[in-house]
Amino acid sequence: MHIFLFLLFGLLCAGGAINLLIQRKPINSALSLIVVMGSLALIYLLLGAEFVAVVQVIIYAGAIMVLFIFVIMLLNAGEEEHTKGSKVAKIIGIPGLITGFIIGVSVLLQHGPQEKRIHIGELYGSASDVGMMLFTKYLLAFELTSVLVLIAIMGAVVLARRSHSS
């Protein structure tokens, strides 16, 4: 059951990602990105990382993508033009992608951490577990990230002010 659901959502995720690239209308691309985010959240849920899954939905699908769609609606962006792509990319691209994939998977399977491999449904990621980790083991990284976000917000405010006054 777990493996079936994993394959289903994995395929949905990959399909959404491909559709995102193929679609010409920005709004359709944005909608496919929401599908990708949603199926990623469900895969997290399958792994047992409940909190991360919900946060993925609230932040990415519920807030950031709404802003994406908001901007697309505001600009009323039309169809984008696709170039035909270079010949080199067509000839080397697909074989290169396949070899890269095969090498990556075989390296991971042979040299990855064998005894620590996590199986589906094994993790237990409740909100309190994640919170404890954030405020003990990963405190420095957490605080530094929050400072980084603060700087980004301040930068956005400064830029918005400047264009307003001139």
Binding site: E50, F51, V54, V57, I58, A61, G62, A127
Partner: peptide
């Protein structure tokens, strides 16, 4: 469900 409230908020935000 352990994160019940968050799931409600997530669904309503969609």
């Amino acid at each position: 469900i352990d994160a019940g409230l968050l799931i409600v908020l997530g669904i309503t935000s969609l």
